[in-house]
Simulated assay, not measured.
Amino acid sequence: MTESASVGTADVDADARALASTVRIRILRLCLDEPLTNREIAQRLDRNPATVLHHVRTLVDRGFLVAEPTRRGTRGSREVPYRATRKSWRTPGGPGMSRVLIDTFLEEVALVDPQDVQTTRLGVRLDAAGFEELTARVAELFEEFAARAPTPDGTPYSLFWAVHEDVSRRTGT
Rank of each mutant, 00 (worst) to 15 (best):
T171I: 07
T151Q: 10
V109N: 04
P156Y: 02
A147Q: 08
A50R: 11
L45I: 01
L30N: 09
D113Y: 04
A128E: 10
D33F: 12
I102P: 02
I102G: 04
P49Q: 08
E3Q: 10
R121V: 12
V52Q: 13
V12A: 15
M97P: 03
L36R: 07
T85W: 05
E34I: 07
I41E: 07
Y157L: 11
I25C: 01
T171E: 08
D13C: 14
T9E: 15
A136G: 07
G172D: 14
D116F: 04
H55F: 01
W89A: 10
T70N: 13
A10H: 15
T91I: 01
D153Q: 11
T119E: 06
A136W: 02
T155F: 11
V124P: 08
L32T: 08
A84H: 12
D116P: 00
G76W: 13
E144R: 08
G73A: 09
D15A: 12
G76T: 05
G76A: 13
R148F: 03
T104A: 06
T171V: 15
L134M: 15
R99S: 07
V80I: 15
L59N: 03
L28Q: 08
E132P: 04
Q118H: 08
M1Q: 09
D116Y: 00
S168T: 10
V100M: 02
R72P: 13
S88A: 14
N38C: 13
T135G: 03
E133W: 10
T58N: 05
L19K: 00
R121Q: 12
E165W: 00
V52Y: 10
F145Y: 07
R75Q: 14
S88G: 04
T104G: 05
R90G: 03
H55I: 01
G96Y: 08
P92V: 03
T171P: 00
R71Y: 14
T119K: 01
L65K: 04
T120P: 00
I27A: 00
L122K: 07
E132K: 15
